[in-house]
Design a protein around this nucleic acid. Sequence first.
DNA 1: TGGTCTAAAAGTCAAATCCA
DNA 2: TGGATTTGACTTTTAGACCA
Length: 766
Amino acid sequence: SELRIATKINTLDSRLTDMWKKGYLFATDIIHAYRPVNRKGKWHWSKTRQRFYMQANGFAPVLKEISYRTFDAKRGREVIIKQEILFHKYERKKVTKKVSVGDNIVEAIRNSDVALFSDEISEKVDHAPKKVRTTINYLLQNKKISKKGWFNPNQGRESWFKKGFLYYVKPEQYAKRLQLRDVIDGRKKDVSEIIHLNSEVQRRMTPKTELFEDTRSEDIMRELLAVYRDIERIEISGETFYYIRGILSSEEIEKQKVYWERNKSKKTSLHTGLGHGAEDFFQLSTDAMCSDGVFGIPEPWWEYTISQSGEKRYNVRKRRRDDPRRIHEFDRVLHCPLMPFSTKNVKDIILVFEAKYRRRMDKEYWDTFITKLKNTYEFGTNDGLVKFNVVPVVVLSWQGREDITVGDKKVSLAKYITMQGGLVLFLTEFERYLKEKTGQSIYFKKMFKEWFRGIREEKTFTQYMIDCLFGGVRPNPGKYEIKVVEKKEKKTKEPTTSIAVGNFVQPMLCQEYFGTSIEKPSFLEPKIDGIRCQIHCKDGEVKAFSRRGKDIKLKQEVIDVLKNFEAVFDGEKVADTFHLFDLLYYKGKTVIEKPYAHRRDFLERVGKKYFEGLDMIKIVPRFEVRDSDQVEELMKSIVKSGYEGIVIKEAASVYEAGRRSSFWLKKKPQRTVDLFVVSVEKDEKRTQKPWVHELACWDKGNPMVVFKHSTTEKHEVDSVLELTFIGLTKNNRLRHIREAIPRDDKTKYECNSLDDLKKIEASVSE
DNA sequence: TGGTCTAAAAGTCAAATCCA
DNA sequence: TGGATTTGACTTTTAGACCA
């Protein structure tokens, strides 16, 4: 451009190129720079390419400093760049296509026989794993490669292997990789290898009992069957066997089937079946006693969970104290609520049942049962004792001999258990009760054997018992049962007591305010819609952190104001303005343990002295509040003046760093609730024929329909919709909904409960 | 480990331009 | 008019921050 101005030649470009080509000039490679361009009357920065030229000086390239103007987008202003650059003679462009990381990855996968995990890919292409992962993502998006994990029936969706997803170009690669049997690790890998070896080398099916002794077998096998599709599962006389399809011939399988049917499975399966049957038997009897009113405790309830197949599962699993990843299983757990003083004061007596029919019930087994109880959070105390309200109950089928030595006496197992504070029930006691009730003689084992021989294919033993004993009607069907949802462990944090300037402190957070009455002296602040910001100042340095401790950039003007302080402020940043609402540290002292009112007074004094009249730094106003009516009033006016909502802070409260504390309560005016779809139907009567969705919230663990939502678009059952909440009618129906937003990120189990809705209603002002 | 989002760099394409 | 080069608009790819 300089030459063009100097020579006034318009067609300079091609002449220069020509001279360069002929060897009179040297030129640089193309430099990308921005220059101002006027387009349609508006100036803006446009990207250009430029070369620099110099007079040719022999043949060797020359290193020379150049300078040019461009626009620095990061800093947002014009800059002058100085750099040393090579001037060289003209060379015909070599058409060498650079191979990109993406191409490398696709090539690596294509050249591999089998599908690859991402870390294997990164090893092959020799790039950092993180770089490879982002590139893989890009390639997936553009459908240049595909990925696959395994379908996890447990969660009902695809999940990844322990090493991640498998990436491939051709589907055969995925199938071939699975045949290598190296995508699953640990115990599961061993199991799959045993099955494989037994099939291939010993040419036999593998019984489940050979693979597992504990209860985790179902999980492991579910995953293996889902991933390795060539593992076949077969049931022979109640026993489960596994083999690899395509390795054993059909004759071999038939032969072994006959063998197992004849020999082994009958006895074991009879005995395990008897065990489970006994559990059902005493449970049904107890239910019958409850409905007859002879059980003695008015409203006991069985603990249960819902299994994958949607059935109730009364075998209760509890997390172990010594290793929370593992569980203990208990046969039945019965809760007996007692109300000694009032219905509000409910005490729970928990009966934990262990039922044994024949198999291994001895002193040692009782001891392990008690150890199991001590070793769960629900039944054990922190000191590793059984909780006082937990009663271990053992259901036995036989009296037993007096073969246990206690001191100088010999006692029976039942006596031994009772001596230790346990409770022993005999199956015969249940049988006697049922005999009185039905008038016919009932023997559990006889009943089981009849079912086992005869009609076991058609119905379960439980149903058979219900038919025999209660004429097909289950006593107390689900009346006294409560589904137990596993609680998540709470993380405990060490409270912060002292603050070092420059070290980020986890900010204190608010809980929701539901319009509860205000009992202690409190203050109300407008809630500012910005970025949480913690400002540290000391020795002329000023630093600001976001809510998660990331650095926030500060303007020089702000730094100039704050640099002489030695303090830590808490506040909210909106655009370039800082709204301060708390003080955590001042002149060498941590003040978070001082009451809120003191901290605020101090902050306001500082604000008045140093920040008055500043646009950059402001102190958030506060109002004293005495009751909830006053809060409502203030809320209205504050929201009107454009704030997001309000925060109520207890005057005497300390600053609880990192906690979502109940000392600070926030409230926003508009509320939403999450409901899930229970049913979808097309309304044929209406002209537009919309889909009518029944939406429900939870009510004591059961879905309860609170709204019918009709739209032209269909939402699937169990999907979650977010509705704007205005109120509830007398029949617990939602009122006046404007729109429903699908929430794909939520599951129905995260939806609101009826109690939530009532609380929200109480807090929404009319 | 999985993923999303954004900015910027790198690359592509075809029209415009220039010259002989 | 043909070939070389420039140019601007556009697309593709990479880097890096952030999140669960």
